[in-house]
Design a protein around this nucleic acid. Structure first.
Lengths: 219, 219, 219, 219
DNA sequence: AATGAATGAGCGTTCATTCAT
DNA sequence: TATGAATGAACGCTCATTCAT
């Protein structure tokens, strides 16, 4: 399910030696911080270099193009989120309903963090015009929706694989949508607990009870 | 319900004379086009000026600060969307359920357009760091959620006003969330009809049947 | 002695009607304030217009070129200073020594004001590259030195007219020079009383006792 | 006596490599030339860059802020003038009167040069609104007046240190004041020899003969 | 007469990238 | 390899001036 090993993540990693690797990690961390703290509009090599106390020249030595830096940063970021989801699913001995409730709760809690609220809203916007970002984000959601679809399929065997995936996508849409209104710093952040309660109850119910014929375009 | 006449929309409008007003409209249109076609990263005075065949100097004559241009553009844009929603609600003789189904369908159809997919994803990102954008977008959603909450309250009299509003917010989150996966140009745009079908059925059901005690944080 | 009526001051004055004349005076006052408060680097039509609450268009209606505004402002300013000196000299019944002491004291007191300190330092700089400013300032000093030379000549009949004028120029140089160190806001402004005391005593002495042969280049 | 090593002159100097250092010197020279030849109003990065045949980008690479360029240029300039004065004083075997005559003559000769006339009139004006320029120019005059005061004290042991300094300031005021009337390009530049003759004679006399009680504010 | 609209050059500054040591 | 130097386009904005009503 993971996209590790695909073209998207097999970028030649800069910094083969220990010292270089450290610097590269510092740069990637600083880049993430700039994106989160100041937004895509302030995502410049200068700002990133300043944040880790190095010169732009050193930065461009490790990442010859800005785009390469974006790609490594994005892989590092989304690998982390994928790992987070994988860990949740790896917990043994949970039945599918509890597992799904757990995932929905975890995702919504994460959405409420400053990091996730900021970084994903930026990525959705960047996806409009940057093909790499679009592809990598799509791969991330494909992975996440695969994990959700597995739980949906387990709860509702009447659904085909495609149908379970669509239900998973619907569940994910609801969760991601809360970012906009109740994410970190958003005007109704204080209502996130209620939205989470409705989501957990409603979406698990939906997964259990939806009939294949209901997943069809309206006449 | 509209925010017309509030502080947010009473910016002194440039272009008092006929000639100037035309130019101002051209500029605002061009600015929207740049934001939609090229994204916030390309939203520069020069690109906007080029698009309407004028010089940067002329542009800054009408909008002394870039921020003012953003504000007028945003007001113009969101006024339009608010008007769209208001018209839907103004239709007489429809019962609340049909009305709500209609609204959900209309919003999701609109989300699937290139314009709406692009512009809202950009606005969500800009909201992270631009207070004016954040406030104006929040005012727009407050308006939209008010309209939705009215239908929810009509369908489900057991809910308090606050509870109806939270349900409305949940409905809106689901709809907006589809932008990310099935908006224009997004990888699962072809699944939008299915997502729409699930949304219409599920969300109207939710509005009708949710009990007040279910809208509470999980223990 | 006055240069009134010469080419320098016979600029066609804008604003023939009462209302226009008022506006013109407001503009000239605002221009002076900008020059004094913000310096030549901030002496722009926009800043001046802002200060009197009008638009740049209105300002350029009254003064088609910035240079014209400078010229009128400068005439108005230096006419005022010339008038001030003339009044001092017009006092009847004073002998030449008292008259000279009075003038030196008055000039140095005036130099210590914010207005005079700022405006003259700006004019000295502008004179380097703006011929009109250079000429008008030269005319002002020619007038002032003429008044001083008359007192010197009265005190020291042995001097030729040219020699008296040179002594007057020397006296004036000392006075103007105090601007730099002890003018308003300058680091040794608190020593101006001592400098003034030395100037009054020394310069009057010089005027009385200098011999014609001492006013000659060193061998 | 020099301010070398003080905070004012320990700006981190750009251009660590030989190539960069050359460029920095070229830029500083060009900047001085622009200030002298065209005045503070024309002191722009573009004009400076044009003068040394480089691009504006290269200029801002070495001096990130225009203000930094001004500061380095000013330090370089006034260090030079301080060095000039120091050399004059360092001449051995001269008695105080000759030394003072020499200094006055040298300063007035220097004032008559195009460079000095232009640059100091600009600096006096800039001092009104630019704190760095004001402080650096004040430091220069403090240094210069210290050298003069030493000669005055030697000639006139009855004066206290403070009184000698005030006399030095008075001497300096007279000298600087000649800039305005008889500096390079000024209307009475041809009278500079006479003004110099009067200054040398009168000011040395003053230094020798002034009594402490004469250096006091007028009653 | 009076004033907003329009203009284009120029401002200081930032940008991603390339060059040279 | 590592890093300052160099580059030139682009950035938002201000400027004095001209145009049109």
């Amino acid at each position: 399910m993971s996209n590790r090993g695909t073209a998207l993540t097999t970028l030649p990693r800069p910094g083969h030696y220990a010292r270089g690797a450290e610097t590269v990690d510092q740069i990637l961390d600083a880049a993430m911080d700039v994106l989160i703290d100041e937004g895509a509009g302030a995502f410049t090599l200068r700002r990133i270099a300043t944040r880790c106390g190095i010169q732009v020249g050193k930065l461009t030595h490790h990442f010859a193009r800005k785009e390469l830096l974006i790609q490594h940063m994005l892989n590092s970021l989304l690998d982390y989120y994928e790992e987070l989801l994988d860990e949740t699913v790896r917990q043994p001995g949970l039945d599918a309903q509890v597992q799904l409730e757990l995932m929905i709760g975890l995702v919504i809690d994460d959405i409420a963090t400053r990091r996730t609220t900021h970084v994903f809203t930026e990525l959705w916007a960047l996806s409009n015009h940057n093909p790499f970002v679009a592809d990598r984000v799509a791969a991330f959601y494909a992975h996440a929706h695969g994990l959700l679809a597995a739980q949906v399929a387990a709860l509702n065997p009447a659904l085909s694989a495609d149908q379970a995936e669509i239900v998973a996508r619907y569940i994910s849409a609801t969760m991601e949508g809360t970012t906009i209104f109740a994410g970190h710093g958003k005007p109704w952040a204080h209502q996130m607990p209620q939205l989470k309660a409705i989501a957990v109850r409603t979406l698990v119910d939906l997964a259990r009870t939806i009939r294949p014929d209901e997943i069809a375009p309206l006449a």
